[in-house]
Design a protein around this nucleic acid. Structure first.
Lengths: 337, 337
DNA sequence: CTGTTAGCGCTTTCAC
DNA sequence: GTGAAAGCGCTAACAG
């Protein structure tokens, strides 16, 4: 076994003394099954020569691939990783290869990747993550999404409505509203909200849902502060809030990483959680379940959402929207004395 | 724009009134550059028809792709996500598409994925994560690695030596030894080690390095308990240790997630950290930097390691081994009163 | 059941 | 500079 030697089907066929058609049939399960004896010969030849089918050639010949794409903003963000994981598991079960692209939150990259997937003739793709509401990039994305769909590939979006494709929606509003009610039930009254960028639908929905939940009890938040949808965003937002000196007794961050960033800032400032200030997040990120005090949050079936997204994407058909329920998880960060 | 309509280069060429050769040359920068006027015509035609090159066909024709693969055990594990992120960034810069596979810690899957990447004629691949030392699966992996390399593709391994490919090694032993020394310097004396499976080289090296570091001060651990290389593994291991009642005053878990799992168990048992027991980990996982008390650990330049791995993989050449230094990060979890 | 043969869409000599 | 044509490796009719 030395130096590159591209063994082709023809090589195998010749060595086995059969036609390429026969070789193809036995090696890649086809319609008609050759006689046992030939099967043996072909398999043996393939084995001896160390034959590996050229997926590119196969794809070209039957104009269809077993590749699916996943687009996430940032694979290091545990939220995306969890959903992507679900997609990958489902893909693995179906023997599909996954092309994963981290767009680093750049709309242009996202569009370019989608185009690449189209060029690769991917069977389907799953786009994860809330889109910005910025009209222009939204239009450009929509256009590329149209082309993608038009190429015959399947597509499912997670946390992003408004596109003519299958959509998986976490019930952000209802979940946040339920959380608000539970917190009020616990006795908290003066709430502050750490929102995300206003262009992110997910962040907006969670904030609005929370406000709606408070309204159910005739309450209004004492403050709303927006920041990036990240750990640092939460850290900075709570500091601004503290500096402004609003008298909140409980703060809701629109996602867990922001909440954790906020908790860190509070610790630095010497504010006790939940003694002086209760803190709640959203997502129930697995990696953060061990933080202390345990973070009250709203659990989303992230992996399942990913699985389902892949199923819908490869299934195709008319655009569907499926909503996944969120579930409030009360922990120590909002425990009342 | 209706129903699937595969626009080919031929369509574009005809519409522009040129040959496919010319169309190819202008659309995919080639050797000879056609006259400006033709370029315009071809580009216009391509635009109007909404032409997208078929990557499969291109790959077949020039027998080379711009696809690279990444193999990780579990993309939800922040350690792997961080390295994979580095690989993806480097890939993105080079305009390479990434095929990411999560092997779910299954050796067979890993081998199968490598074979798939070979079938896809991937340009290169990066395998991340310590290999088990189980002789049989090691041999089978080695065999597939051989085939992969033999196909002309590049390969780099992260945290796994012993294969005839480029290798990126975090300096686990030295890092753990340095940590041990620092802890001793802080005044800790009775150490317990929460090791990983003995078949994982990474886990072994960290444990051994730590022991060596202790030995430098003439110390020996009071106990060594092994568990899975996961959050739950750390949680269970510390509980067994506690039940056995070894009188340790500081415990070193061979990775951060184990350490966090252990801290959680300690909290449940009412053991104060670092008051009653100091805790240290390894990796300095970003997502865990906000846990409280802040976890003393050993930082590895995860993203950089990933970047470098990709560079080596696509560069090819003689197998190299590059070692990345680890750096001790002291935090509150091992602070002495 | 098995072999022939025409493509799949694009790149790349090799002539013009 | 530009085009004709021969593949790249495999699949899928279509004949035997």
């Amino acid at each position: 076994m030395n130096l590159r030697a591209p063994v082709t089907l023809l090589d195998v066929a010749q060595r086995a003394g059969v036609s390429v058609a026969t070789a193809s049939r036995v090696l890649n399960g086809g319609d008609r099954v050759p006689r046992p004896e030939l099967q043996e010969r072909v398999k043996a030849a393939a084995e001896e020569l160390g034959y590996t089918p050229n997926a590119q050639a196969q794809a070209l010949a039957k104009s269809s691939t077993n590749v699916v794409g996943i687009l996430v903003h940032d694979i290091e963000d545990p939220y995306f990783a969890a959903i992507a994981n679900g997609v990958m598991r489902a893909a693995d079960e179906r023997n599909l290869l996954v092309m994963l692209a981290s767009t680093f939150r750049d709309a242009e990259r996202e569009i370019a990747y989608l185009a690449s997937l189209r060029a690769q003739r991917a069977r389907a793709a799953v786009m994860i993550g809330s889109r910005r509401t910025d009209a222009e990039s939204l239009a450009r994305t929509a256009s590329e999404v149209g082309s993608f769909l038009n190429s015959g590939a399947g597509l499912a979006l997670v946390s992003q409505s408004g596109m003519p494709a299958h959509t998986i929606e976490p019930d952000n509003r209802a979940g946040a509203a339920a959380l608000a009610r539970e917190l009020v039930g616990l006795g908290w009254r003066r709430f502050a909200v750490l929102g995300g960028p206003d262009t992110l639908a997910t962040a907006r929905d969670r904030r609005d849902g929370f406000l709606a939940g408070l309204a159910d009890s005739g309450l209004e938040p004492v403050a709303i502060e927006s920041g990036d949808f990240t750990r640092d965003g939460g850290h900075a937002a709570i500091e601004r809030l503290l500096d402004r000196g609003v008298g909140a007794d409980c703060v809701f961050a629109v996602n867990d990483v922001m909440a954790v960033g906020a908790m860190s800032a509070l610790r630095q400032r010497g504010v006790d959680v939940p003694g002086q200030l209760g803190v709640a997040g959203f997502d129930d990120i697995a990696t953060l379940r061990d933080v202390w005090p345990g973070l009250t949050t709203v659990r989303l079936p992230l992996e399942q959402m990913g699985r389902r997204a892949l199923e819908l994407a490869i299934h195709g058909g008319e655009p569907t929207t499926e909503t996944f329920r969120a579930e409030v998880v009360l922990r120590e960060s909002t425990a009342r004395a």
